[in-house]
Design a protein around this nucleic acid. Structure first.
Lengths: 208, 208
DNA sequence: GTCTATAAAGGGATAGAC
DNA sequence: GTCTATCCCTTTATAGAC
């Protein structure tokens, strides 16, 4: 008996994943409100009633995806912090990870979900709070220490760190958006983005 | 009789403008599909029936705003082309205009409308065609000649011009999006963005 | 010109058959 | 577990009163 229920649980989880994957695609391209449950069902190849068998509401599905997106973005910054090297090398590593993730679409779509959740007033407050709940976990805030360390070391120009971080993430968000409009668009090299951090003359910038 | 009808026409136009202005605000913040006609009416301070007296549908209103946004973005690039100076100076002037426009909200909101129209599958094809209709009028395409001229002059690094243009507009779009999430966010100086175009050593970059 | 009342349609969510 | 039929509310759009 326990064996069988475990197996069922696995099947159940697989179905949930299947629906979440389909939902990610249509949410990212149409927006939360414009997405109908039947769009998700069609993308997943099953009936709309079955979606309700696995989830309580459209909002719950969207909410799960926002959580997933927020977690993976925090995770990458923490990995960058743990990366061995100078602050600028940490930033380069992180930038490369993010730009590479744009090649495969799942990460790009998760990025777009986060952008939607944080920019649209049509998103329920409970969902928005998943992102704004802990200000100290925002990408900008998490990146400030790295930037400050780089400035102390003289690797990074001495502009306002918040402005630098905002500009950096504007880049990243803008590229994610671009990617959905134009899937084959050229993705720049990490070093091109990092130029905003570097003094023009006699910098410690180098190619690997 | 002609006097009176002219006056009426002016009042009519003023009302239309009032509704369009209200629509811009709610469309930008909620997205086209999530915006109800009653949201627009409430923002404009009138009844929802009156909105239908001046416009045929929600789509028509959104469509007019997309046209307006597309025109003003083309216009600024043409002005940059006409600007007296080197290619890099043209780009600096254009960047300053765009960043300054982010201070006042109307331009930022128009930017967001364009981003929505080009990224969301929920936007009717007829509206999307207002932006993709003439590929040669896209911001990226219009900016390529300036970048190429700058490369020939040695002012701009010799990377793929399309990649440079894509990266530049990713920046701009990302900043517009940031502005709506965080209205008081610091807007970088034009020179910070332009660093992506410039060789690190011995560049012609200068402060004014 | 402006409003309120109402028709018509669409989509979220549920019930119940298989 | 999965699907179809249905309920019910929201929203678009129109009609008609003032």
């Amino acid at each position: 008996m326990p064996r069988k229920s475990e197996l069922n649980q696995e099947l159940r989880d697989a179905r949930k994943e299947q629906i979440l994957k389909a939902a990610l695609i249509v949410f990212a391209r149409r927006g939360m409100v414009a997405t109908k449950i039947s769009d998700i069902a069609k993308e997943a190849g099953l009936s709309h009633g079955l979606v309700y068998h696995y989830f309580n509401s459209k909002e719950e599905i969207f909410s799960l995806l926002v959580k997933k997106a927020a977690n993976s973005s925090i995770e990458i910054i923490q990995q960058a912090n743990a990366f061995k090297g100078t602050p600028l090398e940490k930033l380069r590593w992180m930038t490369e990870q993010i730009l590479n993730s744009f090649v495969d679409s799942e990460h790009t779509l998760l990025f777009l979900i986060m952008i939607q959740a944080s920019t649209s007033d049509a998103i329920p407050a409970e969902v928005k709070e998943l992102l704004t709940g802990d200000q100290s976990l925002s990408p900008v805030m998490c990146t400030l220490p790295i930037i400050a360390a780089g400035q102390e070391k003289g690797e990074i120009i001495s502009a306002n760190p918040v402005t630098l971080a905002v500009t950096y993430y504007a880049f990243i968000q803008g590229l994610a958006i671009n990617k959905i409009q134009w899937p084959e668009c050229p993705i720049p090299d990490a070093n091109l983005l990092l130029k905003i951090f570097i003094n023009e003359k006699g910098s410690s910038y180098h190619h690997e």
